[in-house]
């Protein structure tokens, strides 16, 4: 109980097995991200982004962030992949072939920004340093006070809901607002008939199609699911909700 203090004065990073695991996961992340950049089939890109999320969840577990890993695996790899798949179904399956016109400028921007960031890492606190400013003062104070003030074994939950309650409330409000935004954006019909438009080739934008649009939408409103556009080919069995 009254052991002498454990003073960590000069931090020496040591290579251990855990660090090699982390390094290999990070390398895999980089490989997956480059594959995502190069792939043109959006289905493959979305699947790779799911893999990317799982890999980063694995990395978070290796770095003791179990709550974050949990969330990343559920949200990033689950919900996010589903949403991107359905959005891909509604937009395009395939990216247009890449034209290397302004690629040089983009590459230049990335190299300059990346170089500046790499230069900055030589002043950054070392990986795993317990005396880094982020770890030593504020973070450790939460750990020290948690047992007495909140009495909650999971420090992350305690900080999330009690110490940073305002923050979490704002984030809940952001999620609420995002859901409202999606409802407003996708809950209404589009100009060209909206939810009952089927696999007809898109009309050119410049052609005056306002009359047919009006007819189409009135037909949709009056006849409901018996609208002329067939919906039988829908991958998910669905008909218009009134």
């Amino acid at each position: 109980m009254n052991e002498p203090l454990q003073l960590i004065s000069d931090f020496q990073p040591s290579a251990n097995l855990m660090q090699f695991i982390e390094i290999s996961i990070l390398t895999l992340l980089l490989v997956v991200s480059i594959a995502m950049l190069r792939m043109r089939r959006l289905f493959g890109v979305v699947m790779l982004s799911g893999i990317y999320s799982f890999l980063s969840a694995l990395f978070f577990v290796a770095l003791d962030a179990v709550d974050v890993a949990f969330t990343e695996a559920a949200v990033g790899a689950g919900i996010s992949t589903i949403l991107m798949l359905s959005a891909m179904l509604l937009t395009a399956r395939r990216e247009k072939p890449f034209v290397p016109g302004h690629a040089f400028l983009a590459l230049l921007v990335c190299v300059v920004v990346g170089g500046a960031l790499v230069y900055a890492t030589f002043d950054a606190p070392l990986y795993g340093d317990p005396m880094a400013p982020a770890n030593a003062y504020v973070g450790q104070a939460y750990v020290d006070r948690m047992a007495v003030e909140i009495s909650m074994p999971n420090i992350v939950t305690g900080v999330l809901a009690s110490y940073r309650g305002y923050d979490t409330m704002g984030e809940t409000a952001v999620i609420f607002t995002a859901a409202l935004g999606v409802m407003l954006l996708l809950g209404l019909g589009s100009e060209r008939g909206g939810r009952v438009v089927s696999d007809v080739p898109p009309e050119p934008e410049a052609s005056p199609s306002s009359d047919s649009t009006a007819q189409n939408s009135t037909a949709q409103n009056s006849t409901g699911q018996k609208s002329p556009a067939p919906t039988a080919n829908s991958p998910i069995g669905r008909e218009d909700a009134p």
Partner: peptide, 16 residues
Amino acid sequence: YSNPLPHVLILTAIVV
């Protein structure tokens, strides 16, 4: 214990 504060920040950031 590892620093819990980044975990809290990132946990909410993922869902947002």
